[in-house]
């Protein structure tokens, strides 16, 4: 039962990544693309944590932590660049 629920969750995350990729491809403005990348980062962070559970390795959570930190810094630098030119 629990494994089936986790597989349904993986399928939902799959479709979330797919929709965000579609928005990245056909987004009209730059802000649309940046927010698509931000959303994709957090979704992939959840995916990495879920994969850490599936494979049973504790080390993968560290990757999720580094992943979130770096993407946050990138989005903040981009927003600051857009607002006042770095």
């Amino acid at each position: 039962m629990a494994e089936i629920l986790i597989q349904i969750a993986a399928v939902l995350i799959f479709f979330a990544i797919l929709f965000a990729i579609i928005r990245l491809v056909l987004g009209k403005t730059l802000v649309d693309r940046i927010v698509a990348v931000d959303t994709l980062t957090v979704i992939s962070l959840s995916l990495i944590a879920l994969y850490a559970h599936v494979s049973g390795r504790f080390v993968y959570i560290d990757v999720a932590l580094v992943y979130g930190l770096l993407s946050f810094l990138a989005v903040l630098a981009l927003a600051r660049f857009l607002e006042r030119g770095l």
């Binding site: 939902l12 995350i13 479709f15 979330a16 990544i17 797919l18 929709f19 965000a20 579609i22 928005r23 927010v35 698509a36 959303t39 979704i43 959840s46």
Partner: peptide, 10 residues
């Protein structure tokens, strides 16, 4: 919730 985020983004 993640799926609804992707759907809302689209």
């Amino acid at each position: 919730f993640l799926f609804s985020a992707g759907l809302g983004l689209l």
